[in-house]
Design a protein around this nucleic acid. Sequence first.
DNA 1: TAGATTGTTAATCGATTAACAATC
DNA 2: TAGATTGTTAATCGATTAACAATC
Lengths: 211, 211
Amino acid sequence: MKNLNKFNTIPEPTLRRLSYYVVYLQKLLDAGIETVSSTQIANNLMFDPTQVRKDLQLTEISGHPKIGFNIKTTLESIKSSLNWNNIENAFLVGVGNLGNAVLNFSLLKYMGVNIVAAFDNNPEKIGNIVNNVEILDIERLPELSKLMKVNIGIIAVPEHAAQETADKFVAGGIKAIWNLLPCRLKVPDEIIIEEANLMQSLAVLTNQLAK
Amino acid sequence: MKNLNKFNTIPEPTLRRLSYYVVYLQKLLDAGIETVSSTQIANNLMFDPTQVRKDLQLTEISGHPKIGFNIKTTLESIKSSLNWNNIENAFLVGVGNLGNAVLNFSLLKYMGVNIVAAFDNNPEKIGNIVNNVEILDIERLPELSKLMKVNIGIIAVPEHAAQETADKFVAGGIKAIWNLLPCRLKVPDEIIIEEANLMQSLAVLTNQLAK
DNA sequence: TAGATTGTTAATCGATTAACAATC
DNA sequence: TAGATTGTTAATCGATTAACAATC
């Protein structure tokens, strides 16, 4: 009777792998395939088969001995664990190269993330539309936070403005911040912070290169 | 007599934190400050002080009881562990939004990563110069790999071309690949792969939002 | 049935945290 | 000296891997 709860905590490394499973399973499903074994998934994505089974169990799906996992239900189960079946609205601040990359990131929709507005302080950018998202004056962020139900704030501004942007998001009632810059943000405990920055990742690479 | 070796393995989570320490310590150094305690570092970056000391010890620096760590030597020690004191040449393939974001990522130089050429297959982009880096025809990658000593290959192409780009890098003798796309690459064991993609990170965020 | 595959439990490995000794 | 800080060791926590039982 342990962990039968839907809101079961899934370890971060598992969540990251699950996102790859989704991409792969969707490909198989589109090809009309109905079942897949943990070994097939593991071989294709270069993970360990036991690990794949452990990961899938955490999403509360079960397979069938000798047959494998039903792709359709497994996909549903993973997407539900990742919360990709619910649509979450997002604001993006900073429409430079990074911001544009996010606005054009085609998997966003598939992950249930819907950018409802982008903000910038550059008058030349304001009013433009990128991938169906209108770029608004950053001044309007507080006002619009009140009007729209937005849970995710994406920070893609120049680094010196990151904390300030986070503060605006918090004041606007956002629940989670996706910080794409190589700095740490100070926010209240209840705010979810997820960091995705190039520096961290590249540091791992440069270190390995020294060996 | 354990781990006195310079090429001591540093855990990945530590490497990621070390990159933040570098940014913070550099800021203090620029402000003319000479020493800092593990607690100060921890408070500023929201890490645990014990963890900071453990991390610093892995870079083989020591502090002084009651005084703290000398900022200059600590910085040198961390940068040396991250291999940021050596310049590593890199090729970047794919000059879309993501590629442009990397080309304009100002910390790159500070991390010792020197992009010597960027490649694209779009004739309109070829010949352009972005942040002092010339964009070359992707056809020239094999030839130039032979001529230049390049250890890092950065993949920022559309996803369907990622594996193909990786193959070209491997054929060209690259040692490490920095893959910015949400897909897994098949490469020989000796090639270092570091993944930095938006999907993985966002998956962690969307999952937490469901709680 | 035999064999392939899942599912479970235990062992291992690795990172974080806690407690406290050493140092200046 | 007393007290602040580092440094070390042990305990804890968490994730991965291995072994093998259960199942169809």
